[in-house]
Nucleic acid binder design. Sequence first.
DNA 1: CCGCGTCAAGTTCAT
DNA 2: ATGAACTTGACGCGG
Length: 304
Amino acid sequence: MPGPARCTKAPVHDGGLRLGYACVNPGLPSSGRTVRLANATPDRLRELVAANLDALDAILRWNAEHGIEVFRVTSNLIPFGSHPVNRIAWWDEFGDRFAEIGARAGRLSTHPGQYTVLSSVNASIVGAAVAELEYHNRLLEAFELGPSHKIVLHVGSTDRFEANFARLSEGTRSRLVLENDERQPLSDVLPLANRLGVPVVFDVFHHRLAPSFDGLSIRELVQLIGETWRKIDGRQKIHFSTQAPGKRPGAHADTIDLEVFGELVEQVGDLPLDCMPEVKDKERSVMRAKASLAKPIPLIDERR
DNA sequence: CCGCGTCAAGTTCAT
DNA sequence: ATGAACTTGACGCGG
């Protein structure tokens, strides 16, 4: 059968939603094993990197078997990846292994956590944030993946973010994507992203907690934000989740709400998007969502 | 061998 | 000023 070998399975909805998940597949070994700082010797770090790469490989194989092409790699893949205690040239020592895994990977991304604050008032924290982002870039480079494999980051103070953005390497800047959150509306993030020339990940749930662009539909917002995504950036990415009942406003529900997801699909299901449900049950939500996509969407309107 | 206190890191909010 | 939450699993000490 001629044609691209990668796409023989699963009728890829090229004009529609692809789904992925973040960091962990609960049924498989962790790809983020670590060690206490005090015990972080070069040899122990090497063991963990090797084990984490094996675990990631297994997850990505599982994903491929299940038609999942989008995945967020854990920041802990390399323990202490941006910390001075880690002196090993992991990108070099494990270069072949990275390349092998990267060649089979679909669309990868990373998402530095709460401690990475590029817009901090504290210079040493900015320095650590720069180091962390450079680590993430080096990680994606090690897989030999191009700039469509993104690093997703929250913003904080837009002024300081803009100033400190200039400290990042060109490679890192080319992968950076900004995300709106429950405190920072799109109306803050989008102008900044346009000034910096980087794309925006639309977090649909958090947009509802910090609304802006009043009057625009979700579809119109996705299309507006879509203008920040250029060809080199690959498919536009969005995040989807719903409120966890009884938890703090903004907390992600444990599993995907297929009814609310169905409403999203009604609006943007025909657009070429990579969508990541942010949920605890990870690949299970993705499989449920995929199953719901395969069926005709029930459009019985009970709202009247 | 297992249970459970603790773990690199920042920020914000409550007390 | 101090501590918990965020979010989360996994490390590894101590019994």
